[in-house]
Design a protein around this nucleic acid. Structure first.
Lengths: 337, 337
DNA sequence: ATCGCTCCTGTAAACGTTTACCACTTCTGA
DNA sequence: TCAGAAGTGGTAAACGTTTACAGGAGCGAT
């Protein structure tokens, strides 16, 4: 294969200057003959513009980053499915960063913004440290954060009212007559863990139920540890009649345990969870789960970013997505909806 | 915010030339004093190298593309989970292309290789057209294809013996005494659809079972259509005693239908599928599924690509991953393994 | 014929790096 | 003391684009 053709090659072949070539290729007004000479030279050579050179000159990479803790979690998947087509339609490529649940890795991604290989970033930080805030403020490219950030942080923000989401689930279980409502949470030093922990206590208080620390167990956000945490909880509180899990993966683990222990769901223990991922409809019984609008959040984040990329500066905006309880058999049994 | 610092800014501040700055930043031998002056200037300015300029000069983007038909399918997810860390460890970013099950979109991605925004590409084409082959041959960056390509195609290739995979499943069902083994497949004009179709017929022949076209139903590779196809099949062949599904999503749809029709699984109808994604262990009953080694294939593809990126030209290589039958309750019941 | 206008195109600079080449300094060994 | 080697750093070119600027052709109006 000979050398890769550049506009210089085209210019020689067409007998014009590189400026004319560039103008033709970018659709600027040109004499018809010049245009056709350039176009056919380009076609014959199989010319494709070099994106590095174009980026260098134009100061735009046409790429957007999406940084998540772990692709394994289907919540993020639902978001990517919304984000990717939107970006593509707007002419951006998607650069995926999976940060392995590692805050230092997240900081690295933020620092990487300085390299300008992306024009903007959507990030779902698992925890927001002071370091994060410093990087947000110093960032040289627009950032959209999915999850909560402190007031006044100079980034666009898409959040969900997870407090209300937890309340919806707890009230639902309460309405079904359950009074010993256990809670299996993820790490308390993560954004969702902390929020759900507070919300659980608040929801109980709102219903006049006592907060019993024995009813709470903390693990991580994945199925195997979810199963272990649920087992600890059930072992400790045999008269448990409902279980709220901080996400669907934890709930799958809990279902595994309940099945092993031959506790009927929902007759003996009703199970509800959060995120309403695809897994909720795959599990048996299908999981009652609080939808935190993952798809909507993904879409909103992409729209915020694209808007900012297109229209430049404006005040940071906050979009809030309403949670929605999706009732399935794991709380109401098969005769349910 | 003032202007973004470049090596020129640093050079001025440190009182040296840009060449020295570049040398220091790249760790080339330099006098200690120069080095420290440059380093502190860089630190004070918060310098971050510009990736477009670096790419332009070095002719490497430090990015690798991964093109799949649809992120929704958990098979691809398993692959990304292997690929991403490997690439990251080698200093490459991952650019994700979801092509919406659209061959023209795939061609676009291949054409995009000419832009040189990635140093290499891993692709899972849903069908391999002549156009694909032409692009493979003309590609200006290394390509790894997951799935089968014709002999002699100048790309690295990771494949799995899906023929054998289907045989494993059919033989398993046969061994369980099933004789009316239905097959729900995806589109026949896709690589996996065609391969599995042929393999199913072959496996039956190998067992001396007749091939009955009534036992085969074609839909797409997703759950809703999987359910519809399974319903058609069951309606047409009431004495069906086993169902092989071309992937896990189809099987989930089939389970939905069987549950609705109150056919016990596996007592009345044994269900087996292919891909062995996470969903297989979430479903109820857990799905017997043929693992086509998605994780291994992802890892192998990443390793092939990284090897080629590091060591340049060599003959195209083919890696084959052995399928493995994972037996669960959907064929052998709960007393199973 | 000259002027001014429009339209087109070429020259050259710029984007931010890396690196070949050369000049200068310092050191080593006879 | 001096030749030569080794070490160090500056100048400038190059990567492949886009684009400001200016020059030239063509044309209608004076």
């Amino acid at each position: 294969m000979s050398d890769v053709p550049t506009i210089t090659t085209i210019a020689q072949r067409a007998g014009v200057s590189i400026a004319s070539v560039s103008r033709v290729l970018n659709g600027l007004p040109t004499r018809a003959e010049t245009e056709s000479r350039v176009m056919s030279a380009a076609r014959e050579l199989g010319y494709v513009p070099n994106s590095a050179a174009r980026s260098l000159k134009s100061r735009r990479s046409n790429q957007v980053g999406f940084a998540i803790a772990d692709i394994g979690n289907p919540v993020y998947l639902a978001m990517i499915r919304e984000i990717q087509p939107l970006l593509k339609a707007a002419g951006y490529r998607l650069v995926l960063h999976s940060t392995n649940v590692d805050a230092a890795d997240e900081i690295d991604v933020l620092r990487g913004l300085g390299e300008r290989y992306v024009d903007g970033l959507i990030m779902i930080p698992l925890r927001v440290t002071g370091e994060h805030l410093k990087m947000f403020a110093a960032a040289r490219a627009p950032i959209v954060i999915i999850g909560s950030v402190p007031e006044g942080t100079p980034v666009d923000n898409v959040r969900t009212d997870s407090r209300k989401g937890v309340r919806l689930a707890v009230e639902h279980l309460h309405q079904l007559g359950r009074r010993r409502i256990g809670f299996v949470n993820g790490p308390l030093d993560t954004v969702p863990g902390a929020a759900r922990s507070a919300a659980y206590a608040e929801a109980l208080a709102g219903l006049g139920l006592p907060y019993d620390p024995d009813l709470v167990e903390v693990g991580d956000f994945y199925r195997p540890e979810g199963a272990r945490a649920a087992a600890r909880l059930i072992g400790r509180v045999p008269d448990l009649d409902a279980l709220l899990c901080a996400n669907d993966l934890i709930a799958l683990g809990a279902l595994d345990v309940l099945r092993r222990e031959r506790r009927r769901v929902p007759e003996e223990v009703a199970v509800a969870s959060m995120d309403d991922t695809d897994l909720a409809t795959v599990a048996w019984p299908p999981l009652t789960s609080v939808s935190l609008g993952s798809a909507e959040r993904g879409r909103a984040a992409a729209e915020l970013l694209l808007d900012r990329l297109a229209h430049g500066d404006r005040a940071p905006r906050v979009v809030t997505v309403e949670p929605r309880l999706v009732i399935r058999a794991s709380t109401v049994g098969e005769e349910g909806p």
